[in-house]
Simulated scan of single mutants.
Amino acid sequence: MDASSTQSVAQALLHARRHRSPVDAAALAGSLREPQDAYEVQRLVREALAPGELPAFWKSGGPSRSAVLTHAPLFAASTWPSPADARNSHFNSRLIEAEVALRLGSDVTAAQAARLTPGDAAALVDAMAVAIEIVDSRWTEGVDAPPLLKLADLQSHGALVVGEWRRFAARDWAMQSCVVRIAASSAEYRGTHPLGDPTWLLPAWLKHATRGGAVVRAGTSVTTGTWCGMLPANRGDRVSVTFDGIGAACVEL
């Protein structure tokens, strides 16, 4: 890991956040060589903006089970209960993802995380909720920025809106439906989670979150990936997401 390169990327992202203006990723495209470099940038940015804050919310996921999953700790300031009003919040862009968030019912240590499999990890979850992720980027290139720079930028996270929690129970995720409404448009999706089951990512996320011997505390939550791809939205739009049998969330943009 090149400390000067990770510092340069972190400073660029901090500049973009503080000045509310995206920065060019092209000049930094070769700065990060591996995911660990991007995760170090995440740490540096978090240390600068929220020193000492333990992440109560994470995002995790990937396009398929064969892909390397990615993870990012989210800021408390950008995690909002539904209904949310984001009309006075700054975004460089607004893309909408409909997701299911999962909440841990007990602490998880590094030793426990190391033993987890997708088959037994769901037993750690006590609650689930509908979530709306507002995808945004601090890079001028947006979601077309180089993958490691997107990962360094919290995997293009803008904000997360979370609906009411309900008790977690096993579901037929292949039949799970959700409806996404953005302004006057509406679309339904069924069985479209890229991993088939949102709980499948729990072992990979918890192994990442407990690196260095950290303990992930009970009540920590993770949002688990989009069911609808990334849908464009505009300032002033009302966005609502409903998952049949789980709940709903909404936000005014």
Results as ranks from 00 to 15, higher is better:
S66H: 06
L95E: 13
P73S: 10
G52K: 02
H90P: 09
A121H: 01
L74P: 12
L124W: 13
D120K: 02
D37C: 09
L124E: 06
F91L: 08
L104G: 03
N88T: 15
K59T: 09
E97R: 08
S66C: 01
G105A: 00
V41A: 01
E53R: 03
A77G: 10
S82H: 10
P73G: 10
A127R: 12
A110R: 04
P51Q: 06
Q112V: 06
P35W: 12
Y39D: 05
A121M: 03
A114K: 01
G62V: 08
A123L: 13
T79H: 04
F75A: 07
Q42G: 03
A48I: 09
A123S: 13
A114T: 05
S66T: 11
V41F: 08
G61M: 11
A98H: 05
S89Q: 15
D37K: 07
R43Y: 12
R43F: 12
T70G: 11
L54I: 00
F75V: 00
D37M: 08
K59G: 07
R43I: 08
N88S: 15
E53W: 08
S60T: 13
I96Y: 13
A110T: 00
W58D: 11
A67Y: 13
S106N: 02
G62A: 15
V45H: 11
S82Q: 11
S66R: 04
A98M: 07
Q36E: 14
A129Q: 08
V100L: 14
V100A: 05
W80D: 09
G105V: 04
L104D: 01
D37H: 12
R65N: 02
T79L: 08
S78P: 08
S66N: 05
T117A: 04
A76V: 11
A72D: 14
E47R: 14
R65H: 05
S93K: 06
A101P: 01
Y39V: 04
G61T: 08
I96T: 05
G52Y: 06
G62C: 06
R94S: 00
T70W: 15
A84S: 08
Q42A: 04
G61S: 12
A127S: 07
W58M: 05
T70V: 15
A111K: 02
A56H: 14
R46P: 00
P51I: 03
A121V: 07
L124K: 02
A121C: 05
G119S: 10
A50N: 00
V68K: 02
A56N: 10
G62Q: 10
D85F: 07
H90V: 12
L49I: 03
S66P: 00
E53H: 01
G52M: 02
R103L: 01
V125L: 02
P51M: 02
P81K: 13
D107I: 03
F75T: 03
W80I: 12
N88Y: 15
G119H: 09
L69W: 13
A122V: 06
G119I: 02
D120C: 05
P51W: 07
Q36I: 07
A101T: 07
A76S: 11
R94M: 11
S78C: 13
E53D: 09
S78G: 09
L95R: 13
V125R: 00
E53G: 00
